[in-house]
Amino acid sequence: RSILEEAVGHASRFPLIDPLDAFYLLNPSGDLSRTQAEFEEWFRLLNMQGKAGVVPSTEELIGALENHDLFYYFGHGSGSQYILPEKIQKLEKCAAILLMGCSSGSLKLNGDYPPAGPSLSYVLSGSPIVVANLWEVTDGEIDRFAKAVLKAFLDERSMSSSGCIQCSMLAEGLNSMSVNERKGNTKKGRGRRKKPESDESMLDISSGYCLRHKLRTGYFVSKARNACKL
C-alpha cells in the first residue's frame, strides 16, 4: 500500500490535512526579499490564500488559523509579533503549523512553572502538528528544507488518483517548479524573481475535493531532512 492509502486508512487515528487548503504568511517584515522571491510565485501558482511582504491584522490571522488545514509562516522568529500566544490559545480550532523562522519552536523556561512559547500555544489550541526550528538557521537552509517538505507533500498528493482533475493539474504545475539547491545565507541574488505575466498559469484547486487529498505531515517532514545536510 502507498503512503497515501495508509493515511486514508488511518484517518480515524491520525489528523489528516490537505497541503493546498492552506494560508501563508510570507516575509511580513519586508526584509527577506530572497525568501519571498523563492516562495511567492510557488504559492501563487498553487492558488493559495495568503499575504506576502505585508503585516496582516490579528483578525485575518485568526480567521486563517481557524479556517484552513495548514498555516505556513516564513519570517523572523515564530511570528508571535503578529499574533500573541494569548490570542492563539483562544482559537476555536487550529490548523497544522509550519513555522519557518529562527528558533520558532524554542520554549521559555519558567523555573517551577510550565515552559511557554508560541509553538506550545498552537498545540494547546488544538493544532494537530507544529513543525518549527529549535535554534537559529540560515535563510538558505531553512528555505531549502521548507521547499523539500512542501514538494514531498504535493508530489504525493498529485499521485492520489489518475482520474482526479485537481491532481492532474497539480502534477503538471509541479513539473514547472524546482527546489532551489542554494546553500547557506548569502546576501547576493536576493532580488525578486519575475512573476508570470498572466493568471492563466494558476492552478484551479477549488472544485472536486476528496478525502484522498488529505495526508499526514510527519512522513513528509522526515523525507525533507536530507535537504539540509552540510
Rank of each mutant, 00 (worst) to 15 (best):
T58R: 15
S125A: 10
L91N: 09
N110M: 12
V131F: 07
G105V: 03
T138N: 10
I62P: 10
F74E: 00
L107V: 14
N110E: 15
F74D: 00
F145Y: 10
A96R: 03
E60D: 13
H76E: 07
E60T: 09
L61W: 00
P128G: 07
K93P: 14
T58C: 14
I88A: 10
Y113P: 03
H76F: 03
N133A: 12
V137S: 07
S121D: 02
E92F: 08
A95D: 08
L124T: 09
D139Q: 07
G79Y: 06
N110T: 11
G105T: 04
L134R: 12
D69P: 03
K87S: 15
F145I: 08
E66S: 11
I129M: 06
G101T: 05
K108I: 14
G77I: 04
G77F: 06
M100H: 11
S57L: 14
E60Y: 09
E136Y: 07
G105W: 00
L98Q: 00
E66P: 08
K90V: 13
Y82G: 01
D143W: 01
E136V: 04
N133S: 15
G140K: 02
G140A: 05
F74S: 00
I62V: 13
A96Y: 03
G140S: 05
K108Q: 14
S119D: 10
I62S: 12
V131A: 06
N133Q: 13
L109R: 14
L109A: 15
